[in-house]
Each structure stands twice: as C-alpha cells, then as structure tokens.
Design a protein around this nucleic acid. Structure first.
Lengths: 204, 204
DNA sequence: GCATGACTAGACAGACCTGTACAGATAATC
DNA sequence: GATTATCTGTACAGGTCTGTCTAGTCATGC
C-alpha cells in the first residue's frame, strides 16, 4: 500500500496504518509539548509515549523542528480554532459579548487541575533567536488570534480595530501569565478590564 | 589571603581577587541568562564568557541551579529595585503618577535594540514542574513586584489594593509579552489601560 | 623561602540529545 | 505465496550538558 493511496478516500479503510501512526505521533507530541514546552521534551520521549519507533517518527518528520512546527499547527487547530473560537461563538452572539466570553472560556481553562498554559507564548519565549522557525511560527499563531479579535472588534464598530485587538490580546496574555503564576482568578480580572475597554468604545 | 579577610573591609584592596571573580561570574551569568533564558545557556558558556575556569565557578556555586537562583536574586536587585522602582519613583511623585510611570519606563525598555524581555516570566514558563526551585523563585520575584504595586495602590487610596495590583501587573506582563512578540507600542497600549483602571478608582 | 589558598587549563565521566543504520517483523496487495 | 512498503527494536555516532578530577600557576602572608 502506498502512502498516497491512503489519503485518496476511495479505499475502504479510513484509518490506515500510516494515518494512525502519524496521528499517534501527533497526539503524543501535542500532550508533551503543550504541557512541558518544546525544548524540555526529547524525541525519545515522544517516541516512547506514542509507542512509535523513533525511526518511524523520523520517517514522518525529518527533524524535531518539523515536529515542533506541526505541533504548533495542531495547537492552532485544536486550541485556537476548535476550542477558543468555537466556545466564544457558542457562548455569545454580539461582538462585545464574544470578546468578553473569551475570558469566561479562560476562567474554566485556568481552573482545570492540569492547566498547561499558552503554548504560543511559551514557544515564543523559549527561543531568543528572532530568526528561529519555531519562534516565527509562534508569533504567527498569536497573530491569528489577534486577527480573530480584530474581526470581532470591527463587527462591533470599534474605530481602530487593530489597536483595540492588540490591547485586548495583551489583557488575555497577561491573564494567562498570571494564571501560570498561580492566580486562579486571572480570567475574572481580565474580564473586568475588558469591560473597561468596551465601555471606552461605547459598545457595552 | 583567606576568604574571610576579603570581606572584612579592614584591608587595603577593595576589589580582592575572590570578589572580582565572583562578580565576573555573576555579571556574565546575568548577561547570558537575561538574554537567552536559563535553560538555553550552559555552564561552559558562562565560564567562557566570564573568563573564569569552570572549577572556580563550581567553587562559588555548587550547581547550575544555585547559579540560576543567584541570577534571579541579582535580577531583582538590578532590574526590579535599582531600575524599575527607582525610575518610577524618580519620574513621578503621586501614587497614580508612579503607577503610570511604570509604562513610560517600559516604553524606553521596549524600544531598546537589545530588549531582552522579562527574566521572571521566562524562568516561570521554562519549568513546568511546580516544585522546581527556579520556578518558585521566579514566582516570588513576580510577587515582589506586585507588592510594590500594591503599596502604591494603597498610598493612592485604592480599595482592594491587592486585586488592583494584580490587575495592574497583568497589564504590565501582557505588555511585556506583546513587546517580546514585536509590538514596540505595547507600553503605550498598557498605559492607556492603566488610565482606565485609575479612572475606575477615581484617582486620576 | 615557604606554606596556603584561590584560580586555571584541560581532560573526563555519565547522562541526555538529535539523527542514523540495520536486520527483522508485519500486513496489504498482486 | 511472493512482493512491497511500513513499522519495530536496538544499537550507535556525534554532540551537548552538568559536574568532577588533576596537575600546576600565581599571589599573598608568615
């Protein structure tokens, strides 16, 4: 069976061996990198946790950097889009309500016993070299979140939606760092500041 | 010459060999750890940069962890107290003015070409293990800053000075992370939110 | 002059890291 | 059943990391 055939969707078995192997790698990398950061986790650990031999892992990803970049893509897919954005849109209808809802979502997140923190901020701060691919990717991941906030601001009629989104994201990131330092009420504090920002714009 | 004699200050030479050696270690560790984080920098690098032999370094600090903790103490001394707090108190007289001045100080910081970011946040996020000494120390360093903010809030007559200080610090940390991601105007955005917080308290 | 104590240079152990080599097992397709 | 591609287990190369050892240098105090 060739690799290309498995993605064709014209064969009977949806979970072919390759797909399931890669998925096992991705899932384990996600769990480990999101909890401990990228630099702290070795390839051997990902291999052991996933039950996939290291050689197979290197067949799927040519280097740890490639695996790290795949992790950040998955984090954006699972955390940013499928979780944060979905939850925000589910919880409120109006743009202002959705912006505020982000802090309600964070509140539940911060109170989870296994709260892991923000992988994008961690990845950004892990690498001081500005040209490092992982750092650049993390920066782009943060920009994706900001674009979502900017869109909400625009829909809410905020003038200077970009500046507003940057301020809103600053509060979000500040609350995440505070929560990482142990402040379980960081989301509530962030929401209060969000209310002040919305009041300034006259849309709450 | 014995070690104790050098710290007695009753001898003629103020910069004895031991003191200068330890100072060279501390200075190099400070430069390297503050720029690249603790985990990214090896003991050999500190040794090479300081011009102090590795064995001598291990005579002064029994482990890299001890060196890292000494770095965090020095960071608190040089960055928190001698720089941030001093500058804040120099630039303004009133509590509210001083709280806001923190963002003016940050503004100059963020615009430095060699802006290095916050060592306490970096150290906190580098270690996922909550019991790690470096992580606990970094958390304490952040608490020191918060105590300073709380004192200013108290002097300004803020009710709920602790909650206020936590919010203020969240904005400060959010602006630092934003600046680390490349937003040179992060301090100005933070100051705007500070103004909203002060206005809410009715002290600006 | 000589003992003492700080420092140096380099080698080294042992652990861990990324990435590779190789021989064999497994499973799907012809 | 033979072929083919994927995956496995283990071992290994070469690098880096923390921490130690040793032999020797240098300055100071007696």
């Amino acid at each position: 069976m060739k690799a290309m055939d498995m993605r064709d969707a014209k064969h009977s078995k949806p979970t072919s061996r390759l797909a399931s192997t890669r998925e096992r790698i991705d899932r384990s990398a996600y769990e480990l990198f999101s909890r401990h950061g990228i630099r702290s986790v070795g390839v051997d650990t990902v291999s052991a946790r996933s039950g996939v031999a290291k050689m197979t892992l290197y067949k799927h990803y040519p280097s740890k950097s490639a695996l790290a970049l795949a992790f950040l893509r998955r984090r954006e897919e699972l955390w940013t889009r499928s979780w944060l954005q979905q939850e925000v849109e589910r919880r409120a209808r109006t743009p202002a309500g959705r912006l505020l809802a982000a802090f309600d979502v964070f509140d539940q997140w911060f109170r989870r016993p296994n709260f892991e923190g923000c992988s994008f901020i961690k990845a950004l701060l892990e690498h001081s070299d500005k040209g490092h691919p992982v750092r650049k990717a993390a920066k782009a991941n943060l920009a994706t979140i900001r674009a979502f906030l900017r869109q909400l601001a625009k829909e809410g009629g905020v003038r200077g939606a970009d500046a507003f989104a940057r301020q809103w994201q600053m509060v979000m990131m500040g609350s995440i760092v505070a929560a990482s330092a142990g402040d379980k009420d960081a989301a509530r504090r962030g929401k209060e500041m969000g209310l002040l920002l919305l009041a300034r714009e006259g849309i709450a």
